[in-house]
Nucleic acid binder design. Structure first.
Length: 268
DNA sequence: AGTCACCTGATT
DNA sequence: AATCAGGTGACT
């Protein structure tokens, strides 16, 4: 599912269901979702505890307890679902957090790349420090983007995906943001003018806000993303098709071993 | 700074 | 059979 907008949508779906609920049982169905040996620790710790807050930092979901939090990272195909009866769960379920009345939360993940980890206050601080600015927060200003850009020689696409700079942007929205800002994904960050960076700042906010609104009311099945609910993808996945703005054919290039889609006509 | 392994399923 | 996939962390 998951870049920032989808993870935020999951958070909003889970919060009203889970807030204040007490976990009466926890079952890790796939050992490798947790670091070696910590499965038992997770099950034991969360059992009997109440969820005091459901938050998000970058693409991480955090279920908070009194002195600790369960960090859930959905990676490529993970999802978190409110479940009316946890005795019936989908094949790809990796973790069950059970409340009373057999209700609970399911962590499903067909590809099993997602990870779960218990963090104390120190661990939470370390996580926070390891991640850059939230792009939809007030701290994310053109000035902040400019100072980060000055220090980076990365191609723009890789800069956007670097979680230590700006946190929460992934492959699809990085491509869409750069199209909206008309920036060539291969351009080095420190070569962009201030006017260009202001455009980029605006595009980051607009694309992520629009996607978040749509993600909240969508069930984004793998491969469909938010497109079905009206999020217009201008470049992602459209190699060979015509640019909706200038009619040139969309290209696919490789950056950091991932596909980047862009329009050679309007991105410079 | 760049590439690959981690997983599984869908598509070519 | 081979390649691709919304992410990351651990390697050269």
């Amino acid at each position: 599912m998951p870049e920032l907008p989808e993870v935020e949508a999951v958070r909003r779906r889970i919060e009203p269901f889970a807030l204040g609920r007490t976990i009466v049982a926890a079952h890790v169905l796939r050992q490798r979702i947790a670091r070696n040996g910590s499965v038992g620790q997770i099950e034991q710790f969360v059992t009997g505890r109440s969820i005091t807050c459901v938050s998000r930092r970058a693409k991480n979901l955090l279920l908070h307890f009194d002195n600790a939090a369960l960090r859930i990272h959905l990676r490529m195909t993970g999802d978190l679902l409110p479940c009316p009866n946890v005795r019936f769960f989908p094949i790809a379920t990796r973790l069950i957090l059970e409340f009373d009345k057999h209700e609970g939360i399911l962590f499903t993940d067909p590809r099993a790349l997602g990870r779960v980890e218990l963090l104390d206050a120190t661990g939470l601080e370390a996580l926070d420090r390891s991640l850059g600015t939230e792009p939809l927060s007030p701290q994310f200003t053109p000035a902040l983007l400019t100072s980060a850009a000055r220090r980076s020689r990365l191609p723009a696409k890789l800069f956007l995906m670097n979680q230590a700079a700006i946190a929460g942007i992934g492959n699809i929205y990085a491509a869409e943001i750069l199209f909206a800002a008309r920036i060539d994904p291969a351009r080095r960050m420190n070569s962009l003018s201030f006017a260009c960076l202001e455009r980029l700042h605006g595009a980051i906010q607009e694309i992520l806000q629009a996607a978040t609104r749509i993600a909240e009311v969508t069930y984004a099945a793998p491969g469909h993303f938010d497109e079905a609910a009206g999020f217009q993808l201008h470049v992602y996945g459209r190699v060979g098709e015509r640019c909706l703005r200038c009619n040139r054919r969309i290209r696919r290039i490789t950056q950091g071993a991932r596909s980047t889609y862009h329009c050679p006509g309007c991105q410079h």
